[in-house]
Design a protein around this nucleic acid. Structure first.
Lengths: 336, 336
DNA sequence: AAAAACTATGGTAACGTTCTCGCTATTTTA
DNA sequence: TAAAATAGCGAGAACGTTACCATAGTTTTT
């Protein structure tokens, strides 16, 4: 059984005290350059590796941050994680991953069993049907900073989200200006902040252009491609058929495209489609999908930076950052 | 500053010893049902949470496993992680994520600074251009089990990979049987095990059907879509143009499709294309992409299970698991 | 030249667990 | 009925590190 050298071993070998070794290793004040040199040399000679459990125990802080999110296997989330990782790595923090599968029960279970003393902070994207948020407040009260990204709860802490309202507004305005008049919206599950904000953007755009709202054309179901297909069939069954669809995200928009192609409805000409996210797939699908690009990587970076500020400075005043999306016009919303 | 209750607090409150509390919480022998009840009740009453640093220090093992891989923001890797996560979560293990960006230097740096005492084991997918593998052997020698997935090194330990040879063989055989005669291969970077195996599958299929090998039609570049495009232009520039392309993965195949569409070459009829992975995009792109489905989720699950066996039982005899792929025929390889 | 202020180091008690003994009742065995 | 086993619990030493305080030696101040 291999056993790593400890600072005690270094101290013994060098015939100095552990405190001095500890100080030398941490490169703090109060240690002469010569001893530091000696210690560092001996550390590499003995293949010394710090024991992070011991450090965590002694200091009361590990360099770990947790990410709690619904899924990882999609473009948006995996890109956010990449952004988080980039910042965390550069500051010497490690990332511990928790996946809720979008289940509130599992989210709660994760919070209950959080390896709490091994976590300096938490980055969370709430699961979509989670209605309680006591567990967030509780962990914050217990001294573990939490920063929300993408999907936020109403808790008073830092958040990084997209400007969903404006993104949706611009998407729908673009449809209107392109000549579509009967615009439907296939949304996500109710209750989620960004679902509501995109809905508001949609409604506000219609209002601004004096287009009356038809409740048959507003559908709220799950986020999947399959739901997008189903919603589209529901819209096609309306007596008064819409001539465009604004989807809450690209996956649902792609579901819509799939359904429309099956029904031989010419996308663009007969039915405009706009999504939200700018999943790489939206550029490759045919017809290519008009969408609002979300700054996923930026969301990851900024939320991680905010969390690190919270960790560094207790009582850091929460910031709420809203990043603009960008409308990307492609084939699916061109009329002719 | 919030302070979690410790077992000492529980002991004091109950006027019993810490050892007893510790035993009761861990549900071990040598503690009466009544005391256990008492302790458990008091633990919830005081909002007790175990301190994992202390446990890790005392036991010499944390319940953390590390994942080291090149990227996360793509279908294959994020699905593998999901599989790993599923098993890890069900066994009470946490996942610490390290991303190398496919850079050998960063991979090495991660290994050097590994929070090694905070990790029970390691799941790694080596970075593509990494030629040394001493660091893997070293950590194994230091007592931390390592299991490779997808991209393996030659180290003697457990591995979970796809049956790349047969997958590639079947893909190329399918092209041959579909009537393509001049089949090119756009591969990944040399030296990587699975790149070589897919190349071998390609070569063996050609041999079996007595098709001579043309070295101009074999290109090895990076894994990106952009490389796929570039490789395709290079193939189109050949005096003797191939009539089909077998790509090492879907992203390169998609690059090929993009290039061919730009050049107005009819995919399927004039040029067959087959990929490898079964990225969801391959079903949605037009024409849809024939590909070999990789069992990404299974790879994740199995490699995690293997690692947990290594962790549980030192000297667990390494296993090398090879999972079959599945040919999925779509439009891009249909001649008429 | 005495007092004060550093500088570099050592000693030791935490941090929250687990683990190995050891002890006392009680129960089982011979 | 004495001896042996067992069940339940406690005391205290680890685990590797940091943090606080003390101390010896050196330099600066008055």
């Amino acid at each position: 059984m291999y056993h790593y050298a400890t600072i005690k071993d270094i101290a013994k070998e060098l015939k100095i005290s552990v405190s001095t070794v500890s100080r030398a290793l941490r490169d703090t004040y109060d240690v002469s350059p010569e001893t530091r040199e000696m210690v560092l040399a001996m550390a590499t000679r003995l293949n010394y590796k710090p024991n992070y459990n011991a450090i965590g125990l002694a200091k009361g802080s590990t360099n770990n941050i947790g990410i709690i999110l619904p899924f990882i296997a999609n473009y948006y989330f995996s890109t956010v994680i990449t952004g988080i990782q980039e910042i965390a790595y550069s500051r010497g923090f490690n990332i511990i991953l928790f996946v809720t599968n979008d289940s509130p029960e599992r989210e709660l279970a994760i919070f209950e069993n959080l390896p709490v003393a091994a976590l300096d902070g938490l980055l969370v994207c709430v699961s979509s049907t989670s209605d309680s948020c006591e567990h967030f407040q509780k962990t914050i009260d217990e001294g573990i900073p939490v920063v929300f990204f993408d999907r936020a709860s109403n808790i008073k802490t830092s958040k990084v989200i997209q400007d969903d309202f404006n993104g949706a507004f611009e998407a729908v305005e673009h449809l209107i200006k392109s000549g579509y008049k009967k615009i439907a919206h296939i949304g996500g599950p109710r209750g989620l902040l960004f679902t509501e904000r995109r809905l508001q953007g949609y409604l506000t755009a219609l209002e601004k252009y004096n287009i009356s709202i038809n409740n048959d054309w507003i559908i709220h179901t799950a986020f999947s491609q399959a739901s997008g297909e189903a919603d589209t069939y529901q819209l096609l069954a309306c007596k008064n058929r819409p001539d465009a669809i604004f989807a809450v995200n690209d996956r649902k928009a792609i579901g819509a495209i799939v359904a429309l192609k099956k029904e031989k409805i010419v996308i663009g000409k007969d039915m405009g489609v706009v999504g939200f996210t700018n999943d790489p797939i939206s550029a490759l699908i045919s017809p290519s999908l008009t969408t609002v690009a979300e700054p996923a990587f930026e969301v990851g970076k900024l939320s991680c930076e905010l969390l690190l500020k919270h960790i560094k400075k207790r009582n850091f005043i929460p910031e709420e950052i809203s990043l603009p999306g960008q409308l990307i016009v492609r084939e699916s919303s061109i009329r002719n």
